[in-house]
């Protein structure tokens, strides 16, 4: 193995890498403190060992001693309703398209509810996804009451014997009280029609988001009892490290990651794989640098 000193500089650099990944200062400090202790305990300065340890520490903090379920809560032989919420432009509608495709491939009967009646072209956008995936969309005119759309959609899904109903909602910033109330109303309508529904409330978070994602998660959780996160746009250069703080402080796990704009660009979340990727660049960059220096 390539030799490299594990000194204060190393930890400082690691701190910057983690902050640069939007992990957030407090969480970074916690991670680094634990790493330092473990490195001391194992008395190692092999970088590949360090990489294993830090991945482990990340997963430790993420899972907090529990088995974290990233599977969706799917009802057997009954309608499963999944509600999508989040701030503007994060990827809610696209994720619904991707999930519709996934469920369809699993042989499920899927329907979509066009609950964004506000944004220009939002209904058409969902309809394109409906066509692409061969799935029916329940909609009303632009500007109509989203709760009424949801009521219709749940009824239609039940009467047509659908397995899965994916409900789109308009993007909204969490500090808009009336819009958050509207969202609660949408959720209540679903609850009233089907006890126990919605079976999942997925908060979509854009990986480029910084510390505000934690505030988003907190407020949306209070309003709609969010059960999981979809972390989108991980195909860019942003890392979405704030999900660690969201998990730690609010207990909400990540269920999927979005890796592009196409139908297939959705994958289940694996904490270990994610953590490994988070540090990959850092460690590889260093190794490359070493090689260059060695070559000089």
């Amino acid at each position: 193995a390539r030799y490299r000193k594990i000194d204060e500089d190393f930890f400082e650099e690691l701190e910057e890498i983690l902050i640069g990944a939007d992990v957030g200062f407090d969480t970074v400090m916690e991670l680094i403190d634990e790493l330092k202790m473990e490195v001391k305990r194992q008395n190692t300065n092999d970088p590949s060992a360090i990489r294993e340890i830090i991945t482990e520490k990340f997963v430790d903090i993420y899972s907090d001693g529990q088995e974290v379920q990233s599977d969706l809560n799917i009802q057997e032989n009954e309608l499963t309703v999944i509600l999508f919420v989040g701030v503007n432009g994060v990827g809610k509608t696209t994720t619904i398209g991707k999930l519709a495709h996934k469920f369809k491939a699993d042989g499920k009967k899927v329907m979509l509810a066009a609950g964004d009646t506000f944004r220009a072209g939002a209904i058409d956008q969902l309809e394109v996804w409906g066509e692409r995936t061969g799935v029916d969309v329940i909609k009303q005119a632009e500007g109509s009451d989203p709760a009424a759309v949801m009521y219709d959609a749940v009824r239609a899904a039940k009467s047509r014997g659908a397995d899965i109903l994916l409900c789109d909602t308009a993007g909204r910033l969490q500090n808009k009280v009336n819009l958050m109330n509207e969202l609660q109303k949408v959720k209540r309508v679903i609850e009233r029609e089907i006890p126990g529904a919605p079976h999942e409330v997925l908060l979509v978070v854009d990986a480029t988001t910084g510390q505000n994602a934690l505030v988003q998660a907190k407020t949306f959780k209070e309003a709609t009892d969010v059960s999981g996160i979809v972390l989108t746009k991980l195909d860019g250069t942003a890392k979405g490290g704030i999900v660690l703080a969201i998990r730690k402080e609010l207990g909400v796990p990540v269920k999927f990651v979005g890796l592009g704009e196409k139908m297939d660009d959705l994958q289940p979340f694996h904490a270990e794989k994610y953590a490994y990727g988070l540090f990959a660049e850092a460690f590889e960059e260093k190794e490359e640098k070493k090689e260059e220096e060695a070559g000089d």
């Binding site: 902050i19 910033l173 969490q174 500090n175 988001t209 250069t237 942003a238 890392k239």
Partner: peptide, 30 residues
């Protein structure tokens, strides 16, 4: 709401295109 990645995005768009200005959206949030 963009986090640490804002520098990568802005630097890269600017290098490749030579932007003339920036519009910062969704500032009605918190």
């Amino acid at each position: 709401m963009t986090g640490q990645d804002a520098v990568n995005v802005a630097e890269s768009f600017n290098e490749q295109l030579g932007i003339t200005g920036v519009v910062l959206t969704k500032l009605d949030g918190d």
